[in-house]
Every structure is written in C-alpha cells, then in structure tokens.
Amino acid sequence: MRCPVTRSGTAGIALATVIAASAVVIAAWWKSGSPADGLSPVFLGFGLWSVTAALAALAWLRSPRGVLEWDGAQWWWTPAGTALPVACQKPPTVHLDLQRFLLVSVFPEGRRTWLALEKRQAPQRWSAFRRAVYSPARPPGSSAAARSQSGTPSD
C-alpha cells in the first residue's frame, strides 16, 4: 500500500487564506490609527507579520515529499530523491482527519516528520490507505496471523 506525498494544495490554500486575512487586519489597524498615536506599533506588527508569513510560506514550500508505504508489517518512508526507504519506528500518528486530507506524523530515523496526505495523491487507493493508517499492526505469529495462515476464519 503506497501513498505518494506531494506538497499539499489544501495546506497551501489554507496558508494563503490566513496570510491574506491577516494582511487585511494589519491594513485595517493601520487605517484606524491616528497620527497622534504614532505608527511604530503598526510597523512593528507589519514587520512581525511579514516575517511570520514568509517563514510559514517557506515551511510549506519545503514540506516533505516522497512515498509513505505500508507493506503489511512495517511502515516505510522514502523521501523524494532517495532510492532506499527508511523504516518508521512506529505507525503514523493521525493529528487531523478531514476525510480527504490527513495530517500525520511518522518517525523515520528518530525524527518526527509531518506529512500532509490528500486523496488526490492516490484516489483509487485512498480508502484502503486510510484503513491501513488506522488499523493496528499485527506482529507476525499473532493469533490473527496464525489463523489466516491455517485457513481458520477470524472472529
């Protein structure tokens, strides 16, 4: 079960919306100020907004890309531009589920990596992939695995 991970269009639209809305607030603040109040707080606010917006946009542009894969026993993360997958130390943790969008974190090589997964990245396999993310892994030799190998139906 493979899910390609690309830069999230949904996250990009949400980021652009927040940046635009906050720009409107800064502009309204600037317009509402009187010359006697001084404009230095507005300029300070604009400077902080500019830095924050630029860092958020940079984080989105640098968002991880690659392939998240479940082989039935282990989760694997293959960053874009590399050939070898890296084993995740634990299953993905779902932090936000909007049906067509999942925000998950994985731990390849001991570092948390945030991934924005979207249905458009793998529309035919999306339902199966979501089930895999939410299903607990069963170690080899577990009772469910032993029953399936012996041909005995599970509960």
Rank of each mutant, 00 (worst) to 15 (best):
L68F: 09
W75E: 07
I13C: 00
G45D: 12
A144F: 02
T10D: 10
L96P: 02
L115S: 13
S148H: 05
D97Y: 09
A27P: 00
A57S: 04
L68T: 07
V24F: 11
W30V: 04
A59E: 11
A137M: 10
F107N: 11
L39Q: 06
V18R: 10
K90T: 09
R125I: 13
A16W: 03
W76C: 08
T52D: 01
S135T: 15
A128Y: 05
L39F: 12
D71V: 12
A116I: 01
F101Y: 15
L117I: 14
L48C: 07
W76H: 12
L39N: 10
A73N: 10
S34R: 14
G81T: 05
R138E: 15
A83T: 12
A146G: 00
S32H: 06
A57I: 00
A80H: 07
L68H: 13
P153S: 12
A137S: 09
V86F: 02
D37K: 07
A36Y: 08
F43P: 00
Y134L: 12
F46E: 01
Q99S: 15
V25E: 03
S150W: 04
P136R: 14
L96A: 13
R7F: 00
G151Y: 05
V104F: 08
L117K: 08
L61R: 09
L15T: 05
A59N: 11
A145P: 00
A87N: 04
R130W: 04
L44M: 11
L48F: 10
R111C: 06
A20Q: 02
P123A: 09
R7L: 11
E69Y: 01
A73K: 11
S143A: 05
R65Y: 01
P79C: 10
S63D: 06
P153Q: 04
G9I: 05
F107C: 12
Q121F: 15
L117S: 12
P136L: 08
G81L: 08
A21N: 01
A16T: 01
R120N: 08
G72I: 12
Q89D: 15
R112W: 05
D97R: 08
A128F: 04
V18M: 05
Q121T: 10
R62S: 02
P41H: 03
P140M: 08
A122I: 10
A122P: 06
W114L: 14
W75F: 09
T6H: 08
L48R: 07
L84E: 15
R65K: 13
V42L: 09
S50Q: 00
F46G: 04
E69V: 02
G45L: 14
V25T: 08
P79D: 09
S40W: 15
A20T: 03
A83N: 05
E69L: 10
V24I: 12
K119P: 01
F107Y: 13
D37C: 03
Y134C: 05
